[in-house]
Write a protein that binds this DNA or RNA. Structure first.
Lengths: 228, 228
DNA sequence: TGTACATCAGTGAACGCGCGTTCACTGATGTAC
DNA sequence: TGTACATCAGTGAACGCGCGTTCACTGATGTAC
């Protein structure tokens, strides 16, 4: 069974075909995640949607978990570039930039709640926690958010007492040696705040209250900027 | 099939037995939720744990969803009283009170992450969204948090522009006519912030970063109080 | 206090279903001579 | 340009499993006389 394209070989027509089918399978998987419940990701159902039988998928993915992992990696990439786009389009003012990124974060999550869940929910069932490939995949996302907060943080700011070393190490481990622990801590707080609002919104808590949380996001981001 | 105790009849020995077994079933269900994955709640497995066969459970619960709903209702109650306890033990200073409640919130979620998920995750699979019994069950939880924030809010504070009416209505619908829209909005923000940190912590995001979020909670709650 | 009867907890077999995954196989497709 | 062969996509049957739920039933338990 040939799982990956041999390195060094030029991609032939068969490789192009493989790549295309792989993409179709992923698309079908996402569609199913979107429609079906939380983890209604069934290989047989995906296969049917693509017009194949279940076992045929094993030509393209080693197993269910591999497929899932790829979806997670893709989602990390997409979210990161959505945020990067928002940052680029608002390059002048740092506050405007941060606000734009925060709103892009929410917008992405609302547009693709199932993918957002895929990213930040716990390892579903017997899923390997933090493989190296997943850590790598989260790098660009971290880069954008850290950068946006960096631009606004006061140079004399400090991380919460007792956690400086932890944040320092975290940054070093991911190759962000130039980011201070204070910035890392504030970025984490921003992330947590956005994540809180986003998950409540995604899980339909606000709609059941009859509340449009848009104003809450705005107020919370304003608070955050003020607290820097 | 007699599902509920007839109203008006005094509870006989059989009723007491029923109540006890129902409790054992719930306990087994929680244990399974805690150990097993997210939604590994299997009726057959629960029955086995209690020492019965699967179909016997139908003497005590109409079906899987009813059991789940009861677990949710219980969880609402437990969380609410954990917060109320924290508030009572710190009755003097309003800031101390709010801080204590916030930490109790985190503590409860960490102690019982599976029950926390049960409360705030989306309706799992084909679950009836917001039944009236669930809305009722969330009442005490709202009461505690609203009260704690009320004590600290400045009388001239306003809700974010454009959402006053929504918060007002929300409060009225739940019988909190004396709570202002501003307090409701601030309480929601507090909730969202705590929820963000808690879910990240529960889903193991902080541990994978090598960070103890305790200091983040403290800093965030301090920020919140300052912003009132 | 003793007996007769209704209630009801729990069983075991069966229902239909879907799951991920393996295996031996067929038939089309690209490649090398 | 034409033929022979190796590659590989996809099939269909099967594996063993677990799920929620129904049904007819047995046997113990509480209750009424």
């Amino acid at each position: 069974m040939t799982m990956t394209t041999e390195s060094g070989t030029k991609p032939g027509p068969r490789d192009r075909f493989r790549a295309q089918v792989r993409q179709e399978v992923k698309t079908a998987a996402l569609r199913q995640l979107a429609e079906g419940g939380p983890e209604a990701l069934s290989l047989n159902a995906i296969a049917k949607q693509v017009g194949m039988t279940g076992p045929a998928l094993y030509r393209y993915f080693a197993n269910r978990d591999s497929l899932l992992t790829e979806l997670v990696i893709d989602a990390y990439g997409d979210l990161a570039s959505a945020l990067a786009d928002a940052a680029d389009k608002n390059a002048k003012d740092a506050v405007v930039r941060l606000t734009a990124v925060a709103h892009a974060y929410r917008a992405w999550a609302l547009a693709e709640p199932h993918r957002y869940r895929l990213l930040f929910r716990a390892p579903l069932a017997g899923y390997d926690a933090q493989s190296t490939s997943l850590v790598e995949a989260s790098q660009p996302l971290m880069a954008v958010t850290l950068e946006v907060v960096s631009a606004l943080a006061k140079p004399d700011a400090a991380a919460p007492e007792g956690s400086e070393a932890q944040f320092q190490k975290w940054m070093e481990r991911h190759g962000f040696e130039d980011v201070t622990a204070a910035v890392a801590a504030r970025t984490t707080i921003l992330w947590a705040r956005l994540h809180g609002l986003v998950t409540l919104e995604i899980e339909a808590n606000f709609s059941s209250m009859g509340i449009d949380p848009t104003h809450l996001y705005e107020a919370d981001v304003r608070d955050f900027v003020r607290s820097l």
